[in-house]
Design a protein around this nucleic acid. Structure first.
Length: 449
DNA sequence: AAATCGGGGCC
DNA sequence: GGCCCAGATTT
């Protein structure tokens, strides 16, 4: 048998006809050596018997091993729209986010807004409060927009992939998930788990971020999906990827489809091969380094003007971020971006200009200043940014302070600690605030430490 | 096709 | 410190 030197690709079919597309973009490929062919991803497919085996084994495994997750508890019994809403909320929360992280957020969300009609009545401030800490806040905004859209169009939930795709924030994956899980449409889904599982099943070495690769993974997932139980099958593949076929340490000995896995087979012929070689690694883009001065401005409202260490009588200045870009529309403490080498004097001068120009706070007159202290530094890591924050607490007396009413381009307000405790702050801002609270605490009662 | 958009848990 | 997670949108 000629192909026995390429066990990893025994399922692939060497295509004889030329492809009509892409050919002109490709460098002429040398004719493969006899007995060894790197298969083109377009040529990869599952055999019929393999499809049947994978469906049966995976569904059987899933029925026994599926995790008890809150969004799986809502049956489509009386109202399939309620099921669809639950799936929708869960799928949006699950984008780029682990199941364990989502569970509590999901339960709180469903308690506050049990149906799409409840959600449609919510404000963006409430939504941000419920979402705070989950990240990718655009998802929450789209969810609210989508709920309003659904209700305005009669409250009937979109049922097909094509209808679902028109809702803001619902892409190919989420449309497929809702349609298959809530409405039994026989469509596949492709997320990070599915890419990993299929890349291993078929030893796909193409760049998993490449559009052509993704397109072909969709094609292969479409071959696999079980038309009788599409929702369960899709969840089964993802469950497998999340629990057994994991990125770094797959548990192949427990895998229900190990007999169908080319990557595992390859390791038995090639001692240097690993299942974790698939999908292939992709170089990451480098992080940007940002620097900012975060100033927590506390206004003492008490008549005495003394350093009041209790919370009563204090207001804190918060500012609304622009509606586009990073952390869009979220509230934060006044912040200015810095250059890497800016020293304390420069930082404070920049802050003072900002406070004066944007909020009418003149902090140059020392008569207004009760205290001004460096609280500390904190490095907050985003996926693409490393943000170093210089945090300070600036306490000002209320008298003689001509504060602006917010009328300019910058939206701002003064709130108390009680409001700050519950409102939707991003994690980095929340961290800075907690540092300030701790600093105030230690200053007011040094003995208690 | 590449960049943007959060945060956290695990190694 | 790196990895990557039940991705979508914009440019």
């Amino acid at each position: 048998m000629k192909k026995n030197t390429t066990p990893a690709t025994t399922d692939t079919i060497t295509k004889s006809k030329k492809r009509t597309r892409n050919t002109c973009h490709m460098k002429p490929k040398p004719e493969p050596e006899a007995g060894f062919a790197i298969s083109d991803i377009e040529d990869i497919q599952f055999r019929e018997d393999s499809v049947a085996e994978i469906r049966a084994s995976l569904l059987k495994w899933y029925d026994v091993n599926k995790r008890d997750l809150p969004w799986r508890r809502i049956s489509e019994g009386e109202a399939s729209d309620r099921k669809a809403y639950a799936v929708w909320v869960s799928e949006i929360m699950l984008q780029q986010t682990r199941v364990q992280t989502v569970i509590d957020y999901f339960n709180r969300w469903m308690e506050k807004w049990p149906t799409v009609h409840h959600l449609a009545q919510a404000s963006i401030e409430e939504v941000n409060e419920m979402w705070a800490g989950l990240g990718y806040y655009r998802r929450a905004r789209f969810l609210l927009e989508g709920a309003k859209m659904v209700v305005e169009e009669g409250g009937k939930f979109p049922r097909s992939v094509s209808d679902l795709r028109r809702v803001k924030g619902i892409g190919e994956y989420t449309a497929g998930a809702i349609a298959s899980i809530a409405f039994k449409e026989a469509v596949p889904v492709v997320d990070g788990n599915v890419i990993r599982v299929i890349a291993r099943l078929k030893t796909i070495s193409a760049n998993p971020k490449d559009k052509t690769t993704i397109k072909n993974i969709w094609r292969l997932a479409g071959q696999l999906v079980d038309s009788h139980r599409p929702g369960d099958f899709n969840q089964a593949v993802m469950e497998l990827g999340a629990t057994l076929c994991t990125p770094l340490s797959p548990d192949c000995s427990s895998c229900p489809v190990s007999s169908q896995c080319s990557a595992l087979l390859k390791t038995k012929h090639d001692p240097s091969a690993l299942v974790t070689d698939y999908p292939t690694k992709v170089a990451k883009v480098k992080q940007r380094h940002d620097y900012s001065a975060v100033t927590v401005v506390e206004i003492l409202e008490s008549e005495k003007g003394t350093v009041d260490t209790s919370d009563s009588g204090s207001k804190f200045l918060i500012v609304k971020r622009p509606e586009e870009g990073l952390l869009a529309g979220l509230w934060e403490f006044p912040s200015v971006s810095l250059n890497e080498k800016d020293d304390l004097v420069t930082r404070r001068r920049t802050v003072d200009d900002f406070l004066k120009n944007s909020f009418g706070l003149n902090v140059n007159r020392s008569s207004n200043i009760v205290s001004r202290d460096e609280v500390g530094e904190y490095v907050h890591i985003f996926t693409h940014i490393r943000l170093k924050m210089y945090i300070e607490l600036l306490v000002l007396r209320s008298q003689d302070l001509h504060r602006k009413k917010d009328k300019g381009s910058m939206l701002f307000k003064y709130v108390d600690t009680k409001t700050l405790a519950t409102m939707g702050l991003s994690t980095g801002v929340r961290k800075a605030y907690n540092m300030v609270l701790k600093f105030r605490q230690s200053r007011s009662s040094p003995i208690s430490r």
